[in-house]
């Protein structure tokens, strides 16, 4: 009905709305992965972290609503999501730095472990409705209901917008940012500077997983705002690919996240105006886009601009 009033304008508007809603998890996970990879380790397990974050955010928000009230409990959920991500990150950081252990293999293990744990612990939370995060109604000026609902922004998304330039400043202008870059680019030089490679990588991975966990909270407490086992559907992994596309630059991660959020909204947007013949193929758009982007960005001949020198090398 609403779509009829807008006609074909429903499609771009739907995509815009979906971009604003759906890009937050990409943003958080890609920033987390960016931080992790800058220190020279890959964390493929962020897919599991994302699910674990989504589950713990939803669970904590549901369980604490009677104690602290439905206004505050989602925020407790966000914090819980971050910390549960951090625990997974600590496991990954420790395992991936053992001698002769491949971080990609550990990452796959952590995807399975994180999602398995999330499914097990999250079983009781599939039915009940947990209090959601408040939204900021930026679109209050508009009389068109679609525009108004499209501009209901999540505060988490705005926090993510702020973290991206902050992280870039952190890498460029702080002592700790230099440590992370040194460990990621040239572990020998870092060692000569007297930096503990193990500690820097551990902290980077844990901080990165904290962000990814919050990305999970965006899924379960904002959009789509439920907890199911299929909630992440590969978004964590796409975010990892997105970091390569963004050349390990936090601000570019932001643009890339918006692009991916938009791609994800194509299927539902077309469905909302009544085109669902190619529903499944449209829904595969983000995966195809990721693949295309990687084909265009990557090259076997040169190292990518911005790639940490020691990334993926075994120590």
């Amino acid at each position: 009905m609403a779509a009829e009033a807008l006609g074909w304008w429903g499609v771009p508007l739907g995509i815009l709305a979906g971009t604003l809603r759906g890009s937050a998890p990409f943003l958080f996970v890609s920033l987390g992965e960016c931080l992790t990879e800058k220190s020279g380790k890959i964390n493929l397990g962020l897919e599991g972290t994302l699910l674990m974050g989504a589950m713990s955010a939803y669970g904590v928000s549901y369980l604490t609503q009677d104690i602290v009230g439905p206004g505050l409990s989602p925020w407790l959920g966000v914090v819980a999501a971050g910390f549960s991500g951090m625990v997974l990150g600590a496991i990954h950081g420790w395992l991936a730095q053992q001698p002769r252990v491949n971080d990609v293999a550990v990452g796959i293990a952590m995807i399975i472990f994180g999602s398995g744990l999330a499914f097990f612990l999250g079983k009781p939370f599939i039915q009940p409705q947990a209090p959601q995060l408040v939204t900021l109604n930026v679109g209050g000026w508009s009389s068109v209901p679609q525009i108004e609902s499209a501009l209901k922004l999540s505060p988490l998304f705005l926090i993510g917008l702020a973290i991206a330039p902050l992280l870039q400043w952190f890498f460029r202008s702080t002592r700790w940012g230099l440590y992370v870059r040194a460990v990621g680019d040239s572990p020998e030089a870092a060692k000569a500077m007297g930096i503990s490679i193990f500690q820097v990588r551990m902290l980077s991975i844990m901080a990165g997983s904290f962000l990814a966990g919050i990305g999970g909270a965006c899924l379960s407490l904002y959009y789509p705002g439920v907890w199911t086992e299929r909630i992440s559907s590969g978004q964590g992994l796409m975010a990892v690919a997105l970091v390569i596309f963004a050349h390990w630059n936090p601000v570019q991660c932001l643009w890339a996240s918006l692009l991916f959020g938009g791609a994800q909204a194509i299927g539902p947007a077309f469905q909302s105006v009544g085109i669902d013949t190619y529903y499944y193929l449209f829904n595969a758009a983000p995966y195809i886009l990721t693949l295309l982007i990687m084909i265009i960005t990557c090259s076997p001949k040169r190292t990518l601009i911005g790639a940490p020198g020691a990334l993926g090398q075994e120590d």
Binding site: M294, C298, K301
Partner: peptide
């Protein structure tokens, strides 16, 4: 193309 095979195969 040097595309990471783990990510591309999962996609």
């Amino acid at each position: 193309r040097g595309v990471n095979e783990t990510i591309s195969s999962l996609l």
